[in-house]
Design a protein around this nucleic acid. Structure first.
Lengths: 143, 143
DNA sequence: TTGTAAGATGATAATATTTGTCATGATTAA
DNA sequence: TTAATCATGACAAATATTATCATCTTACAA
């Protein structure tokens, strides 16, 4: 019942992207430094974010990453699922499972409800809010 | 963002306990067989449940386990936390963390909210309901 | 067209966690 | 005393996590 470090780093990375002006291209070492994340790992993680369409990669010199969507349209759920795959809080919620209790199991049905609640909770917040708060803190520090 | 097998097995085990008449003592191999769980692992898991006070262990001949509380007073959250420890969806929500963003991090605050939602969702359902549904299915099969 | 700065990809490895198993010991009822 | 049960600790296999690195591809700019 825990996020991976990768998800944590991904979220931080997207927060930083969301702080930039729209369309801005940012380079991984900058994101890593600013958000206190191991640079090599973050590079890997951004490739997942790119594959799923949360960021856009720009190859070559002057390359880097930009956001693929508006920060308001990216949720915690989107980023976590990009990194970890779809949220399935129990193996039996995977569609193709082998447990022979599948057809009737009340535990499975209950957990399905919990999973739904969790996903909803993760969809509540978007990265515009998170970026605004991060920005506010930085500006207060600067003053 | 996944339960361990141990949690799944624990939940199934407690469902079976909750199906028994109040105070009944049941033996691990029976629970394991009925709920389709590896017996050795389940034995281990019931010791966690016993330590935390969800079941009571009875040692010696005629021993086994009984429920420590009424099924209505046991939630999914109780059982999962007995097995996995307190739910902390990110390491920084552990109280003692080392991340230097701790003091202000908006990601941390957001995840704290998600964690709270998750715990609430897991506290919604109790084992009286689950046991009733499991029982209903078994009786329909028998007929 | 060449050099350089970026991302893309696959291999590899260290570590941690999960999922068990097993042997041994302690306890208790009969 | 014996048999059935839980308790505990050691161990181990499998899997997942958390990276790192080398090499390749791409694209801009001189």
């Amino acid at each position: 019942m825990k996020l991976t470090r990768a998800s944590d780093y991904a979220i931080r990375g997207v927060v930083y992207m969301a702080m930039q002006s729209p369309g801005a291209i940012v380079v991984i070492p900058e994101v890593a430094r600013e958000m206190d994340v191991p640079v090599g790992f973050l590079a890997r993680i951004f490739q997942s974010l790119s594959r799923i369409g949360i960021v856009v990669s720009h190859r070559g010199k002057k390359g880097g990453y930009s956001l693929a969507r508006k920060p308001e349209e990216i949720t915690l759920c989107d980023v976590i699922e990009a990194v970890e795959g779809d949220i399935r809080i129990n193996t039996c919620l995977n569609g193709y499972s082998e447990c022979n209790r599948m057809s009737f199991c009340p535990v499975r049905r209950e957990l399905a409800g919990v999973q739904e609640d969790l996903v909803k909770s993760l969809q509540k917040s978007n990265f515009a809010e998170l970026a605004a708060r991060e920005k506010a803190h930085r500006e207060s520090r600067q003053a």
